[in-house]
């Protein structure tokens, strides 16, 4: 039980931690241009404002989304447009480009999750890392090397994703990572390749339906995740922070937390491992997933965006969606699978 004691954070501590994790994001209150089409960003913004101020009792008024504008960030969904020459044939990368360096090294070094079923997880039976995120990386590997196996996986926790990019330890991160303004300050993102949203997971027999009903209850959440920021807007919910998603499921199965909050994609992967878990409530946020890359390697970002366009167009995206997600995730949050949606349309403008 000492385990839980170490990791459990009382609400005040959770807030303090959230504040620490997002230190330097005080300016975030002015970030993003969430309009009616993007309520999630607004919600995240207010949540972060509450925690960034390290105010143990945030002003209730702050939980009302207030649209804010940041001209420096623009939309976090907007990436660098690919150019025609950014789709060179595999094996013929432009001289001096990041892609040529990667090719010279002989492998693409990629930060992934190893425990997010459906997106990036280590299959215990084969030992291989698989999932929708991994399929995106395979497409990048195929574009550079002509072979989708030239990938060196580096398993990272959510909290490590940005650090390994800024330090140059990995070329790219594909790990259910939401493109946000705050993260754009440190790294660059590809165009959005998946639209997720935060929801809540509880026991099948639970009467709890959303975070507001969970005051005083323990809810598990990953450190340094956007979900944690959202949770900060519910200061009376007791956040139990762990470094990995699978730790949340273990705590949930052991009855040490009442619920888990994370992206619907992640939660769908958890439900697939535990039929006694259900995802409830509406989407609390919009989480546009993008591949993370170094802010310095804009050429690589453009190249990857070119690869993603191809992935969207040639059926790779839908095939991958069909393989991993279709039967397990209801994109509308209604509880019914609604077939394969169209891939998110890319936005550029940087």
């Amino acid at each position: 039980m000492r385990h839980a004691d170490v990791r459990r954070a009382c609400p005040a501590l959770a807030l303090a931690l959230a504040g620490t994790a997002l230190a330097g994001t005080v300016l975030l209150a002015g970030c993003g241009t969430p309009g009616p089409s993007d309520p999630g960003s607004a919600r995240r913004t207010t949540a972060t404002r509450a925690s960034a101020g390290k105010d143990p009792a945030p002003d209730p008024a702050a939980s009302t989304p207030a649209p804010t504008v940041d001209t420096r960030c623009g939309s976090p969904r907007a990436s660098y447009a690919p150019e025609a020459r950014d789709r060179p044939a595999a094996g013929k990368m432009p001289k001096g480009s990041t892609m040529e360096q990667i090719r010279g090294r002989g492998r693409l070094v990629a930060g992934v999750s190893a425990d997010t079923l459906l997106f990036g997880y280590r299959n215990p039976i084969t030992g291989a890392i698989e999932g929708f995120d991994v399929d995106m990386l395979k497409a990048v590997s195929r574009a550079i090397f002509g072979d989708d196996r030239e990938i060196q996986y580096r398993v990272v926790t959510p909290a490590e994703r940005i650090g390994v990019l800024t330090s140059g330890e990995v070329d790219i991160v594909a790990s259910t990572m939401t493109a946000t303004c705050e993260r754009w300050r440190q790294i660059s993102f590809s165009s959005v390749y998946f639209e997720a949203g935060q929801r809540v997971l509880v026991r099948r027999d639970s009467t709890l339906k959303n975070l507001s009903q969970m005051a005083g209850k323990k809810v598990c959440v990953s450190q340094s995740s956007t979900s944690l920021s959202t949770l900060s807007a519910h200061p009376r919910v007791e956040a139990v922070q762990v470094s990995l998603q699978s730790d949340c499921l273990a705590l949930f199965q052991q009855g040490r937390v009442e619920g888990i909050t994370s992206d619907d994609t992640v939660l769908a992967g958890l439900v697939a491992q535990d039929p006694y878990a259900v995802v409830v409530g509406p989407k609390l946020t919009d989480e546009p997933y993008a591949l993370g890359m170094s802010a310095k390697q804009t050429d690589f970002v453009r190249f990857v965006n070119g690869v993603l366009e191809q992935v969207r167009e040639d059926g790779t995206w839908k095939a991958s969606y069909g393989r991993w997600i279709a039967d397990r995730l209801s994109p509308t949050g209604t509880g019914k699978a609604a077939g394969t949606p169209d891939p998110p349309r890319p936005q550029y403008g940087r």
Binding site: P124, S246, A250
Partner: peptide
């Protein structure tokens, strides 16, 4: 969990190690 191919097995393995 490993036997069923569920990655949550790795979380239990970490707990065991702890």
């Amino acid at each position: 969990n490993n036997r069923q191919g569920f990655p949550v097995g790795s979380a239990y393995l970490r707990q065991a190690s702890d």
